[in-house]
Design a protein around this nucleic acid. Structure first.
Lengths: 193, 193
DNA sequence: GTCTATAATTTGATAGAC
DNA sequence: GTCTATCAAATTATAGAC
């Protein structure tokens, strides 16, 4: 992660790291302030309420996630690499950040989130479904005999990858993510290096 | 859910319901006490610390889950029904309780849990993997061409079902669970009624 | 077993000086 | 923008009466 340019960016970086460990109710303005090196009152200046901060967290997380993925309609991306790009998005969460997907965690606690935060989390998953649906539409060389609709395949892959993060972290073995992904997507192999 | 017989049981019922909404950091002794109709000090009598309560919660959840599933080696269970029994275990969590899997949610926050709680959550997933591995070993009529190891198939199905709960709840559509399950397990159909 | 009372800390949030 | 100061409420937990 590049060093933050703005103070708001630094706050979001810190809050995201903490939220991805302990969830929405597991981090505080004081935790974030201490990490950033300011006081909690100053955090409130940038994000008036915790709901504001939580929503900004989820929105930025989603924007960054899909910016890295790129446009699935873009012909510059060979269609056969689209699915592995998507998987890599989740895999990096574990391999690089060593953390849970923010929206996966927030999604698990969705019923306890302020409405504004929940809306952003929902938006993340809707965008993910649309992205994958488009990707499956292009890479339409499905396995022979698999007549599952692209949208259902999208739902299933997203569910599997979120669950794979939970499993790999709980059992403290990142390789579990790769084994799950390989088992869910025939032909997929973990990237080298 | 049958009405609790003991006070400790009533406490666990209430705490489980709350924890499955908001996670480990999202419920308090006072919340639980208020639901049960006692004072928070009385909850401490039954469960001295929150870590004790959390661990008891996860352990009871796991015991109940696997008691309902039964022994996958038991020949009384036709092998072709084992996988759908397992799926039903997760599906009921949504269809009956309308809630997240307790250990799925706790697993997502694993790095923030007291060690004693994390150990119980880990145990839940290890038991789930063993159960499914045994089931896949018996129902060895895998799809032609699928040479995935039973243990990896187990990991993948558990991940998919946990993720399906997150997706279905976040997008507020229980049918999503069924579509994911059907897409992950060819031939599976949601139970009638 | 449950209560009252309370301790010690943390929480989200605000007022107002600089 | 950040600070000090502060608030009201909530948190986990304990002591001790009943």
């Amino acid at each position: 992660m590049e060093p933050p340019i703005t103070k708001a960016g630094a706050i979001l970086d810190s809050a995201e790291r903490l939220a991805r460990i302990a969830g929405y109710n597991g981090f505080s303005f004081r935790d974030v302030a201490a990490e950033v090196g300011i006081k909690s009152a100053s955090v409130h200046y940038h994000f008036p309420t915790k709901s504001d901060l939580g929503a900004a967290l989820a929105r930025r997380y989603a924007d960054r996630f899909f910016a890295r993925l790129g446009d699935p309609s873009d012909l510059a991306h060979p269609s056969h690499t689209l699915i592995e790009r998507f998987i890599a998005g989740f895999r990096d969460t574990l391999a690089i950040d060593g953390q849970m997907c923010l929206c996966g965690l927030f999604g698990a606690e969705i019923a306890a989130l302020p409405e504004a935060v929940g809306a952003e989390v929902r938006s993340f998953f809707e965008r993910a479904i649309d992205w994958l649906e488009t990707a499956y539409g292009r890479a339409s060389r499905g396995i022979v005999g698999d007549d599952t609709a692209p949208r259902d395949r999208a739902l299933a892959l997203i569910a599997t990858l979120e669950g794979a993060l939970i499993l790999a972290r709980t059992l403290q073995d990142p390789a579990i993510f790769d084994r799950v992904a390989a088992s869910a997507v025939p032909g997929w192999r973990p990237p080298p290096r």
